[in-house]
Amino acid sequence: MYTKKVMKHFQKPKNYGEMKDADAIGTAGNERCGDILKIYLKIKNNKIQKISFETFGCPAAISASDVLCELCKGKTLKQALNITAKDISEYLGDLPKLKQHCSVLGKEALKKAIEDYKKN
């Protein structure tokens, strides 16, 4: 059902875990299937220095979260906001149609985290 790449990021995600000293946190929930994603950011000079996630969800949601973190590393906030659900899906080598919505979730959480950072 899933590509090898999805399974790799799902089984061995690199970027998971709570970040105690995060500068910004963003949470997004997908009501369609109940996934919940939390993004933690450490920001320096407008750049994402560290990023991690916590996800409640299916393999697609977890792997998409991990990939989003991977793609965000070292990016400026503006560059990070430009990452699309399609970028994540393509990086994973295509998600099943039914699971495409899982890759949208990460972007929402990231956007919220950056908005949260800008407010403070």
């Binding site: 799902f10 409640f56 393999p59 949601a61 977890i62």
Partner: peptide
């Protein structure tokens, strides 16, 4: 706090076939 399809996928990776009633 965890999702059934993910449990099932990890079990499958260990050779164990199961099923879930999760929405995902």
């Amino acid at each position: 706090y965890i999702e059934g399809e993910s449990i099932g996928a990890l079990l499958d990776a260990k050779g164990i076939c199961s099923s879930t009633g999760s929405a995902c």
